[in-house]
């Protein structure tokens, strides 16, 4: 988390930086968790980050 006097920036994955690397594809398929009738991907965990 980076702080400025008037701004608190939450710690987030930088998606622009991500482009430099290929996705490994090891992460969970979103519909295998608890949806089955909708789609969200941001709630999934990155397998690389988990290590």
């Amino acid at each position: 988390m980076k702080e400025k006097k008037r701004i608190v920036t939450l710690s987030t994955r930088d998606l622009v930086q991500d482009i430099e690397h290929d996705g490994c594809g090891e992460c969970q398929t979103s519909c295998q968790s608890a949806c089955k009738t909708s789609c969200g991907v941001v709630n999934q965990v990155c397998e690389q980050e988990k290590r």
Binding site: T12, D18, N43, V45, Q48
Partner: peptide, 15 residues
């Protein structure tokens, strides 16, 4: 999961 969530490729490709 803002910090350890999926990479850009997952976010582009979806389910």
């Amino acid at each position: 999961d803002l910090d350890h969530g999926p990479c850009i490729y997952k976010r582009i490709a979806g389910c």
